[in-house]
Amino acid sequence: MFPLLIVALLAMQAGCASKAPEAPPVVVSPSTWRQVDRDIAAASLAATGQARRYAQDSMERWMDLVYQRTDTAFVPWFTSFWTRKWLSIKVTWYRLSSDGEREETVNRLSRYLQEAYDDKVLEPVSRELDPDDIMEQATRTYIQQLDERLQLIPQRFGVPKDQFAQHLHEIPAIELAPPISQRASLLQVLRADPLEEQPAYAALMAHIRTAPDGAGAWTTDAGLSSITRQTSEQLASEMVTSGAASVVSGLVGRAAGSVLSLGFTGISAMLQEEERPGREAQLRKSLNDAFDEEWLELMRNPESGVMAGVFHLSGQVEGSLERTMTQPIRFEPLPRVLPPGN
């Protein structure tokens, strides 16, 4: 019996010895967390740089398409003789319906020309490349690049992955004020799959897309508005001459007047064709100036530009880390490449 008891006791001791004691949780020091936060901020800055490169390259391609479409579709239409005659008719109608108010006439003509520009240039180009889509893809690029860099940090500093995930959950990434009132942590954004179904992210994209001064509204800028005003004044002057032809037509009779009107139209067309190259050159210069200014606005505007989503996320992330970083990390800004025309 005693041998059996001894065997049982030895077996019990062996079983107890095989159970290793649980390791205590890893305690990460405050100084290590500050180093982690500096690396997170550096990762955000680097990801912003990658997103900016994508946005800049894409916007340069978009601008090339806008230039080409403007040159082949809008400028020839705008400067043609028959378009100007049609615009003269519209100016006459606008003046009659506004009791001769010049300002209202100019504004209505401006809106008409902006709609024509949308139809002939911006909408066809947007089917191939669109600033709103560039904005969203730039935001995705930032998130993807940031995620790749953050995955290297826990091992670098010996931080347990669960503690690092909790730390990311405490860092805000999206914070939308009322009436939207949507928020998301950095961890929620990084783990969203698919990203567009993350409520705060979807709200941010919708907010930027519907901004009143976004990419789709830029044709109301001073560049095109000044062109429409000049055109309105020119058309008003042409109407005076056209009115003189109508008076002569009435004096010499309907048949002779019709012949005279046709002759006058032909002469006007010939004269305006001679002036057309100069008008086209002036129009191209005015539009190019407006294009260059708007391109820079779309690249820089933090509320509605193509980097708006990136600026929001990076601003939230880096702003929340400023309180814990002992020394900010700075990077040299990317060189800016101006679009064609500068």
Score class of each variant (00 low, 15 high):
Q145H: 13
D162I: 15
D64R: 10
R191C: 07
D193Q: 11
E332T: 13
E238T: 00
S29Q: 13
L122H: 11
F157A: 02
L176T: 08
V259H: 01
V7Q: 09
M1G: 04
A202E: 01
S258T: 15
T92Q: 06
E273T: 15
S18E: 10
D130M: 08
L168F: 07
T219L: 06
P328I: 04
G305W: 07
V91N: 00
F311G: 10
G253W: 08
A138Q: 02
I153K: 06
D118A: 15
Q35I: 00
W33N: 03
A206E: 05
Q327S: 09
S225W: 14
E196S: 11
V26L: 09
A211C: 07
P154G: 01
E273S: 12
W33V: 02
A20R: 07
R183H: 12
P302Y: 05
K85I: 13
V240D: 15
P21Q: 10
L87Q: 09
Q35H: 15
G309C: 01
T228S: 13
V247E: 01
R61K: 14
L190Q: 01
Q114K: 13
P340M: 11
P3M: 02
G309S: 03
A20C: 09
L122A: 14
G263V: 14
R140N: 04
A8M: 10
K19T: 13
R254E: 14
S185M: 03
A138C: 02
E170A: 13
A17I: 07
W62H: 12
A184R: 04
Q114W: 07
V36H: 06
L96F: 13
A14C: 08
L186Q: 04
S304R: 14
Y112N: 11
T72C: 05
W82D: 09
F291T: 01
A203E: 00
V248Q: 03
N301E: 06
S98P: 01
L122K: 08
Q13P: 09
A8Y: 09
K120A: 15
D64L: 05
E197W: 08
Q145M: 11
M135P: 02
I134A: 01
E60L: 12
D133I: 14
Y112R: 11
S44A: 14
S44N: 03
V28K: 12
K161F: 11
A42V: 00
E103P: 00
S286Y: 08
G257P: 12
R149S: 08
S185L: 10
D213F: 14
M205C: 09
P172G: 09
G341K: 01
T324L: 09
L334N: 06
E318V: 14
